[in-house]
């Protein structure tokens, strides 16, 4: 089934989040967050450090157990799943791109091995096929074929991030979580990565939840935007609407605080 057919067939949300709450003792991680994410949609989550956006992402990706609320993926209750099921989902249908590629890569394993791991984890046992697929994905993220046996420690930051993306997308996930994927990269490298991500989203029909504090990144990448402050969602809507006509005081402050180039 192509990505297009997948989108056309399902007009059901891929991810349905309802009343998600996580507290750290008396402190609020995130409070009563609800939204739907449809196939092929990119949702940006912005807010300053400590606004709860990373907590929310961790709860969604199953890295943290929320205190309250429901998360349904493709009609299945994620929080009620066994850990085996959830981790399996994390290796197949889901992907998680870390801000620091070192957290998402095996630095002691070659680029090919990094990309191949997810394939081997779901049962691929033919070396030649695994290698061909790794080669294909390295090309898609613009890493030269002759780097396949090099370790990521020999790569630049931008290459490491692209490798992390290849490693995550090789199993054709449907839902990708991204935590500041362009943070810490040079501006020129950022642009290249954004272009790559946009193409992949479009060609593969990916649904993406991207957490960032960079409004320029979400403007170019996200269809919809959620603004968080102190663990609460203060505003959500169409990305350019939220950025050009913010309704909430905090969103207005956030948008007006961006330095103009």
């Amino acid at each position: 089934m192509t990505a297009m057919e997948r989108i056309a067939m399902t007009d059901q949300p891929l991810l349905r989040v309802d009343g998600l709450t996580k507290r750290y003792g008396p402190r609020i991680g995130c409070l009563d967050v609800s939204f739907d994410l449809y196939p092929g949609e990119v949702l940006g989550i912005v807010g300053e450090s400590g606004s709860g956006k990373s907590t929310l992402l961790s709860c969604l990706a199953g890295h943290l157990q929320p205190d309250l609320g429901r998360v349904a993926y493709d009609g299945r209750d994620v929080l009620a799943m066994s850990e085996t099921e959830r981790r399996r989902l994390g290796r197949t249908d889901w992907a998680y791109v870390h801000q620091n590629p070192r957290d998402g890569l095996r630095m002691g394993v070659s680029a090919g091995g990094n990309v191949g791991e997810r394939l081997m984890a779901i049962g691929a046992r033919h070396y030649g096929e695994i290698r061909d697929k790794a080669q294909d994905w390295l090309a898609r993220v613009e890493i030269a074929a002759d780097r396949i046996d090099d370790r990521p420690s020999a790569f630049s930051g931008g290459m490491q991030q692209r490798l992390q993306i290849a490693r995550n997308l090789v199993t054709a996930p449907r839902l990708v979580f991204m935590d500041e994927p362009t943070g810490g990269l040079d501006v020129s490298v950022q642009a290249r990565l954004l272009d790559l991500l946009r193409g992949l989203v479009r060609d593969l029909g990916l649904s993406v939840i991207i957490v960032t504090h960079d409004l320029a990144v979400v403007r170019l990448l996200a269809h919809r935007l959620m603004v968080m402050k102190s663990g609460r969602v203060v505003e959500q809507g169409l990305t350019d609407q939220v950025l050009d006509d913010p309704q909430h005081a905090y969103s207005q402050l956030l948008v007006s605080s961006v330095l103009q180039v």
Binding site: E117, R118, M120, R125, R131
Partner: peptide
Amino acid sequence: EYGLMHVKLYE
């Protein structure tokens, strides 16, 4: 989750 073992052999 034994995919990692094969990563070693792949390497």
